[in-house]
């Protein structure tokens, strides 16, 4: 009887979890080049390959020129650039809100040298949603020494209020008028990572988890984050 109860409860507990695919990241190979390239049978058609190369070159040019770089489709990791129309400095942004999540903008000039947007993961579950952007110098497993960044915004009724009630100690800084707390040993924080969190309202919490990034740099990144509902 307990066996069937466990099966039912576990299945119900995780039925809403729908992870985003990172297959392209794996097929591209981790740093060090130990993974063989995809076989010819798994390579995309030449026309798509050429388009992908062209898109990559444009993206590199956009980063170099400090343009606005924006992920355009929430369902893919496709990146395309647009001329800077709202800000003089370059920025990296998540997609327009399509299904779930919130659009984030981060100034690329605040990121550590060589670090770039790797992927974004919109997630819904329970009674809220979140968007997470991951940054690194190269796609990989995020288990090395860094520099790595995970910027997330989570939106759910009363979520930030609950977080504030559990926060201890004094805030370490102000981020856009909001008190921000830093922690490196709390629940949900992997060993070696540091968390900087602030609430923008009772229902919205922004968190930057980092590894191998100076506190001042993280704070500068935090102050550049803009959320577009």
């Amino acid at each position: 009887m307990i066996e069937q109860l466990l099966r039912d409860r576990m299945e119900a507990a995780v039925t809403d979890i729908r992870p985003a695919s990172r297959l392209d990241e794996i097929l591209a190979g981790p740093p060090g080049g130990t993974v063989p390239p995809p076989s010819p049978s798994r390579q995309p058609p030449r026309r798509i390959t050429l388009l992908a190369v062209a898109a990559a070159l444009v993206a590199v040019a956009a980063f170099t020129a400090g343009w606005l770089v924006r992920s355009a489709d929430r369902d893919t990791t496709r990146i395309e650039n647009q001329p800077a129309t709202t800000t003089a400095a370059g920025s990296t942004s998540t997609a327009e809100r399509a299904r779930v999540g919130t659009q984030l903008t981060v100034l690329t000039s605040t990121l550590p040298k060589g670090v770039r947007l790797i992927d974004e993961t919109p997630t819904s579950g329970g009674d809220g949603f979140s968007t997470t952007l991951r940054f690194a110098a190269e796609p990989g497993t995020f288990t090395g020494s860094g520099p790595y960044l995970r910027i997330s915004v989570t939106h759910a009724d009363g979520f930030a209020t609950q977080w504030a009630e559990r926060s201890t100690g004094d805030p370490v800084a102000q981020v856009q008028g909001h008190d921000a707390w830093r922690s490196d040993d709390g629940p949900g924080i992997q060993p070696g990572w540091t968390s900087l969190s602030w609430a923008t309202g009772p229902d919205e919490l922004v968190e930057i988890q980092s590894k191998g990034v100076a506190d001042d740099t993280v704070l500068a990144i935090a102050r550049s984050v803009q959320i577009h509902p």
Binding site: T15, G126, F159, P187, G188, Q209
Partner: peptide, 10 residues
Amino acid sequence: SPRLTVVPAV
């Protein structure tokens, strides 16, 4: 914990 980046179901 509200520090979770993913909102868990009850």
